[in-house]
Design a protein around this nucleic acid. Sequence first.
DNA 1: CCGTATCCAGTGTGATACTG
DNA 2: CAGTATCACACTGGATACGG
Lengths: 129, 129
Amino acid sequence: MARLTNDRSSCPVSVLMNLLSGPWTMYIIWMLSTSGPTRFGALRRQVEGISTKMLTERLRMLEQEGIVYRHYEPTVPPQVTYSLTERAGELVTILDQLNGLAQRWYGDLPSCGSSQVQPEALEKATVLL
Amino acid sequence: MARLTNDRSSCPVSVLMNLLSGPWTMYIIWMLSTSGPTRFGALRRQVEGISTKMLTERLRMLEQEGIVYRHYEPTVPPQVTYSLTERAGELVTILDQLNGLAQRWYGDLPSCGSSQVQPEALEKATVLL
DNA sequence: CCGTATCCAGTGTGATACTG
DNA sequence: CAGTATCACACTGGATACGG
C-alpha cells in the first residue's frame, strides 16, 4: 500500500525492511523482547508517546507477519497480551548484531534495549503459542 | 528533524535504523554492493523510479555517515562515482543475514541483490578510499 | 480495558524546470 | 553529466471521541 512504482515490493529484503522501517516498530519489538509478554495498556505506557492508533496498527501488522502473538482473554474487562513469537527470535538475533554495530559506530552508552536478547522473554512468548 | 517526542533519537539502533529506513536507501546500498563503484547517472537508471532529488539526498546522507564514498572527477563533463566504503562492509554483512532471513520467510526467488556479498565490489570500493 | 472511526495538520516525495 | 530549486499534492500519523 505504498509506492509500487518499482519492483521493490517483490524483493524479500525490501519487504522485511519495509516492515521494520515503520515508525515505532523496532521499539515495540525491543520492548517485547526485553519485557516479555505485555498487555496493551502497559505497552502503550512503555512505548512513550505512541498513539493507540499507531500501536494497534503496528501490532496488527507484526501479528500478521507472525512476529507477534496476540492473546485475547475474554474477561471483564478484557485482557489482551502481546508477546514475541518463536519466529521473532531469528529476527531479534540479527537486530542484536545491528545493535552492536550501531553501538560501535555511534557510541555504546544509551542503548534502547539490552544488547543481549533475554532468553526468558522469548521462552515466555513461545509458551503462549 | 523528525519525531523527537521520545528518546529514540538518542538510541544507537534507532539512529542506524532511521538511516536505513529511509526510502530507497537499502536499494542503493544493494546496488552499490553488487555493482561496485557506479556513476550517478547509471545509479539513477539502476534504481528504477527514483528521482534525482531523492538519489542525491540519500547519497549525501550515506556519504555523511561514511557508508558511501563520493569520487568527483572535474572533467568536462564532470564525472562523479559513488562506491561503498570499508565501513559499509560490516553493514552489508548484517544486511546479508537479513536477506537470508527474508528469503526463508517470504520465498527466495526474487532476491533484489546477490545473497552473497560480492567481495570485488567492496574491494573496488575500498580502493577508491 | 482495548480498541475503532473520523478528522486534520504537517511533511516527505515526485515532477518539473533550471544551472555549473 | 550531475546536480539544485521550487512547488503542489498524497499520505502518514496525532488528537479526539466513541464503541464492545
